[in-house]
Amino acid sequence: MLRDGGWHASATLRHAVLDEFTTTVQRHRQGKNTRAITPLELAVNRPIAKMLDWFIRFDPSRAHLTLGSIQYEAAERLGISATLSAEALRRSLVLDSKIDDATRKESFDRALARDEPS
């Protein structure tokens, strides 16, 4: 488990993911797309996915809180549904992670809501 640096890693990861999400949403809106953004389009880039992978493996408790925070902020600030952000992050880890399927499923089941935030 990480000590004080874990909160720094959490904040850095949260901002990196939200920045990636923001860039995708802005590009999508500028292109005047009428279709919804897909989880694959919203997936974060490899360095961010690898950082998320590392954080889940080395500080799972804090990672769960961070994932929930990302999901909430994405919904509030960007209008990205909880389901879409969760699926995008899952897909990011499927593509660029050392985490096995069971650990990935457990991490997201514990951290991310299945429905929209109230």
Rank of each mutant, 00 (worst) to 15 (best):
A36G: 09
W7F: 14
H15E: 14
D59E: 13
G68R: 05
A9R: 11
P47D: 01
L40R: 13
D59T: 05
I56T: 06
T22G: 07
I56Q: 07
L13Q: 05
N33G: 08
H15W: 11
S61C: 00
M51C: 01
I37L: 15
V17G: 08
S10E: 04
I37V: 14
H28M: 04
W54K: 10
Y72N: 11
I56P: 05
A43S: 13
T12V: 07
A16V: 00
T22C: 04
T38P: 06
A9I: 12
Y72D: 10
F21C: 14
L65Q: 14
A11N: 10
T22A: 12
A36R: 15
Q71V: 01
T23W: 03
E73M: 10
R29P: 03
A49D: 06
Q26W: 05
R14F: 01
I56D: 08
R29E: 15
T66Q: 03
I48M: 00
A11C: 03
L18S: 05
R57L: 15
P39S: 13
Q26L: 12
S61M: 05
T12I: 09
K50N: 10
R62Y: 09
V44K: 02
K32Q: 15
H8N: 11
L13K: 04
I70S: 02
P47V: 01
I70R: 03
G31Y: 05
K50V: 08
I48K: 00
L52E: 05
R57W: 14
T38Y: 09
G31C: 09
P39N: 14
I70L: 05
F21T: 08
A9D: 09
W54F: 15
I48H: 00
K50T: 12
R35A: 15
L67Y: 03
K50P: 00
P47S: 06
L52S: 08
L52G: 09
A11W: 04
V25M: 11
R62W: 05
I37R: 03
